[in-house]
């Protein structure tokens, strides 16, 4: 019974992830990313990690996704056009397929099958598993945990500094205009360069 449910969740995760990568509209991508996170949370639950499933839903599907959606809402994003340079769009799928084949060959030989782990299988998922996890997090990994708080603090400062407007709105707009002008200049220049270029895109 568990296997079909796992397969459905796995298929859902892959489907949503593929949609994130393939859809042209960023808002659609974000919604599909939430779907992928939900499927993964279900898989965490099935393979025996209820706490991580809850964390996945709270932090990923909750906090991080809201952040993404807010940014998409704030920035007026248009549909993305495919790359002008088609080389990467043709090479990348081939390379990814190759990589996946390689991983599929290597993965079963991964030496993780240790029958005598340190986990408390008996009470896994219940209160015992949670106790074990807490002992690890606040015992053996206490220093890393504290370092994490430092990382979060640095992140907060970084975000405040980055998002703060240092110049006036007028200066910002002037800079934006400059950038757009420079862009259109390179766009005007580019076509003859590509046509006569030695890149050899066409033939």
């Amino acid at each position: 019974m568990a296997l079909p449910v796992f397969l459905i969740l796995a298929a859902g995760a892959v489907f949503f992830a593929a949609n994130v990568v393939l859809r042209r509209n960023p808002a659609e991508c974000a919604v599909h990313l939430v779907g992928s996170f939900f499927c993964l949370a279900g898989i965490y639950l099935m393979i025996g990690f209820p706490f991580l499933a809850a964390l996945q839903l709270l932090v990923y599907a909750g906090a991080i996704m809201v952040l993404f959606l807010f940014v998409i809402m704030l920035l007026d994003l248009r549909r993305e056009e495919p790359r002008e340079n088609p080389r990467i769009s043709t090479i990348a799928p081939l390379a990814m397929g190759l990589l996946f084949g390689l991983l599929a060959v290597v993965l079963p030989d991964m030496p993780v099958a240790v029958a005598t782990g340190r986990g408390a299988v008996a009470g896994a998922g219940g209160a015992e598993g949670g106790k074990e996890l807490a002992n690890y997090l606040f015992g053996r990994h206490l220093l890393t945990f504290e370092a994490t708080s430092l990382l979060l603090l640095a992140g907060i400062f970084g975000v405040v500094v980055l998002a703060k407007r240092r110049t006036s709105r007028k200066a910002d707009l002037e800079r934006l205009l400059e950038n757009i002008e420079a862009e259109s200049r390179t766009e005007r220049k580019e076509p003859p360069l590509v046509g006569a270029g030695s890149e050899g895109v066409a033939s």
């Binding site: 990690f49 991080i64 240790v114």
Partner: peptide, 29 residues
């Protein structure tokens, strides 16, 4: 988590997953 599961639900793997989630949150922000 898959590796932790293979090691009889080793909490070590879960702890790393928690740290990865934290780093992901900071990275996104």
């Amino acid at each position: 988590l898959a590796a932790a599961r293979e090691r009889m639900l080793d909490p070590e793997g879960q702890v790393y997953a928690i740290f990865v989630i934290t780093v992901a949150a900071v990275e996104a922000a």
